[in-house]
Nucleic acid binder design. Structure first.
Lengths: 223, 223
DNA sequence: ACCTGAACACCGTTCAAGT
DNA sequence: ACCTGAACACCGTTCAAGT
C-alpha cells in the first residue's frame, strides 16, 4: 500500500513560491526589469495573475525573495577559509560578480536594503572583521561602512546596466556620461575634466576592489 | 515708449521648468514620493497634465532636475574653506543633511546616480582630495570610493524613511528590522545578533561620519 | 509657441466565482 | 486549499485640437 501523500507533496506543475521565484528570475535575466509583471509571470507559469498572490504577498515581496535567493547563492560561493581580509575581499567580489551577472539585483538591493540579502552580507563581513581582530566597538561601524560602499556601487552598476540596455555598449554608456559631464561649464568642473579618461576607461571590478582595499586600510589604521 | 517685451519675458503665472521643479519639490516634501504624478502636478499648477511635457521630457527628467537642484543647494552650503579633510567631511555631511531633510533625494540619486548631482559631489570631493595631496593616480579611485559610500548610505536612509512613513517612528522601523533580522535562524547570524542593540539605537549621522573617517584613514594610509 | 484634456496602453491588486 | 480572470483604480505619455 503506497503511503498516503503528505500534505506538503504536490503535483510538479502546482504553483509554489519557489516556482514563482524561479520564473521571476528567468524573466528578469532574459527580458530585464521592465518585463517583470504579474501578467507576464502568469503567462509563463500558465496560470492566472491572481493565483500568484496566493503564494506571494505582492511585488515587493516577490522582488525581495528573488534578490535574497541570488545573494544567498553568491555568499555560499565566497571562499571564506582564507585570511580574514582576503575573505572580506572574496565576499565583496562574490556580491559584485552576482550583481554584474544580474544588474537587477543591484537595483533591488539598493532600493530595499533592509532585507535579508543585506543581512547575509552584513553577517559574512562581520564575522571576518571579528576574525581580523577589529575591536568590538568598531565592528558595527566597519561592517556598516563596507555594506554601504557595496550598496552604493551596486546602485551605480545597476543604473549603468539599465542605460547600456538602451545604448549600445558599456563603453558607449560611459562615453555618454563623460560627454554630459564634461561638455557644459567645463571650467566649473576641473577635477571631472581631469579624470574623464579614467572614468571612460576604468574597470568596474578593479575600482570596486580598490575601494574595498581603501576601507580595509582605514580599518587597519584605526585598529 | 516701453521697451518691447523680450522673448524671454513671461507672465508670472506662465509655466516654466523652474516652476514645475519647485512644484515637484513641494509635492515630494509635503506628500512623499508616491504622490508625485503628472496629474497632481498639473492640478497644483492649475494646468493640463500634457502641458508639463512642453517643459520637461518625462518623469525621469523631472526627477533628475529636482534632485540636481537640491544637491546643488547642499553643495553651496558646504564649508570648503577649511582643511581639505574637514572640507571633505563638510561636503559629505551637507549631502547627508540634505537627504535627511528630503529622503526622496536619496531614492533618486541612488536610482539614477549618473546625473549632475553626482557630478557636483564628485567634483567637490575631488578638488579636496587634490588639496589633501593624494597622488594623482589614486584620486579617481578615492573620490569614487567616497561617492559610492555616500550613495549607499543615501539608499539605506531613503529606504528607511519610506518604511518610517508606513510605521510609526524611526525607532519603530529599526526595531522592526532588528526583529526580522534576529528572529529566524538566530544561530546562523551571531554577528547580527551581537550588534542588534547598536543597530537599533545607533545615530545615522554619527555612523555616516565614522564611515567617512574610515575611508579618509584608508586614503591617508595609502598615500 | 504654448496649453488643454481626452484617449491609449499599460500597471498592481482585488475578489467573486469556480474546482 | 488553491486557482481563474474580469474588474478596479490607478499610472506615464501622446496628440489632435485649441489660443
Amino acid at each position: 500500500m503506497p503511503p498516503k501523500p503528505r500534505r506538503t507533496e504536490r503535483r510538479s506543475d502546482a504553483l509554489s513560491k519557489e516556482r514563482i521565484i524561479a520564473a521571476a528570475i528567468d524573466v528578469l535575466d532574459t527580458d530585464g526589469e521592465g518585463a517583470l509583471t504579474f501578467r507576464a509571470l502568469a503567462t509563463r507559469l500558465t496560470t492566472g495573475s491572481g493565483a500568484i498572490y496566493w503564494h506571494v504577498a505582492n511585488k515587493d515581496d516577490l522582488l525581495a525573495a528573488t534578490t535574497d535567493h541570488v545573494i544567498a547563492q553568491a555568499m555560499t560561493g565566497a571562499r571564506v577559509d582564507a585570511a580574514p581580509d582576503d575573505a572580506i575581499r572574496a565576499i565583496a567580489l562574490a556580491v559584485f560578480d552576482a550583481i554584474h551577472a544580474r544588474p537587477w539585483v543591484g537595483t533591488q538591493i539598493s532600493r530595499e536594503p533592509w532585507q535579508s540579502g543585506t543581512r547575509r552580507i552584513f553577517e559574512g563581513l562581520g564575522q571576518q572583521l571579528q576574525a581580523l581582530g577589529v575591536p568590538e566597538r568598531a565592528q558595527f561601524d566597519s561592517a556598516s561602512a563596507l555594506v554601504s560602499y557595496m550598496l552604493g556601487l551596486a546602485a551605480q552598476y545597476a543604473a549603468g546596466a539599465r542605460l547600456v540596455a538602451r545604448k549600445t555598449s558599456r563603453t558607449g554608456f560611459l562615453t555618454d556620461v563623460v560627454a554630459r559631464w564634461t561638455q557644459d561649464e567645463p571650467d566649473q568642473y576641473p577635477f571631472v575634466q581631469q579624470i574623464a579618461d579614467e572614468l571612460r576607461e576604468h574597470d568596474d571590478r578593479e575600482q570596486f576592489r580598490a575601494g574595498i582595499d581603501l576601507i580595509l586600510a582605514g580599518i587597519a589604521a584605526i585598529r
